[in-house]
Write a protein that binds this DNA or RNA. Structure first.
Length: 220
DNA sequence: CTCCAGGAGTGTA
DNA sequence: TACACTCATGGA
């Protein structure tokens, strides 16, 4: 049963990595949004430099980025790779949040907000869900590369929407739970999903639990 | 030198 | 719908 595997994996990862409170430190909501875009297909260490540089130049706000010439933004964003794409994306997102403030996201229905985010340049499924979950506080489970890899190890295949529905069906519809699980998957992935293969991958441990009743998740 | 990281957009069948 | 290709820097 796929749903049992999803639940069991959460407990296995929880036991190994702990609660991971505030694993994503950011100085402001917009800093998280910027980080969500810059981290695409890149290591976080590179993103951190750019975020620091933006703050040093006092540019960490939608208005500042929107007003910044594209060429200057490209120059700042360069260390994260794909700098032409990311500069354009960051600018589009900054313009969007200049027109409709970040705080106003909580007033919109989740599916409406998701659609608006997806319409922006450089925001696909994953980045939209990251912003929904970590900035807007909406219960939208994030499916990233590590999650897909992990699902593959468990023999679960499917496109983005299918995997997302699987996780959301298996878990209580709760923002902290979604954030925690995503954080656990990332921490596990950085450790075990590297080029060395998945010898000590959590899925190897998961197999021992198969056939036993699923863990019951604590009510939030 | 080679490989690839917490993706997304575009073009093709 | 489902892939292949492209974008690019920095670290191991």
């Amino acid at each position: 049963m796929k749903m049992n595997d999803i639940k069991t994996l959460y407990h296995i990862l929880s036991a190994e990595f702990g609660p991971l409170y505030d694993w994503w430190v950011a100085g402001s909501p917009f800093e998280r949004i910027a980080g969500a875009i810059l981290v695409q297909q890149t290591r976080w260490e590179n993103v951190d430099r750019v975020l620091t540089e933006l703050k040093n130049r006092d540019l960490m706000s939608p208005g500042s980025i929107a007003a910044l010439p594209l060429e200057e933004l490209e120059d700042i964003v360069r260390p994260t790779g794909f700098y032409r794409n990311k500069a354009k994306s960051l600018k589009a997102v900054a313009e969007y949040f200049t027109a409709s403030p970040i705080d106003s996201m909580s007033n919109k229905p989740q599916h409406v907000l998701r659609k608006e985010l997806l319409a922006l340049r450089g925001i696909g499924n994953e980045t939209a869900d990251v912003i929904l979950l970590y900035v807007a506080g909406k219960p939208s489970f994030v499916i990233d590369a590590y999650t897909k890899k992990l699902c593959g190890c468990m023999g679960i295949q499917g496109n983005y929407a299918e995997l997302q529905r699987l996780f959301e069906d298996a878990l209580p519809r709760d923002v902290p739970v979604y954030q925690h699980y995503h954080a656990l998957i990332v921490e596990h992935g950085k450790r075990y999903c590297g080029r060395k293969g998945c010898d000590s991958c959590a899925v190897a441990r998961l197999r021992k639990y198969r056939g036993t009743p699923a863990f019951e998740l604590a009510k939030p």
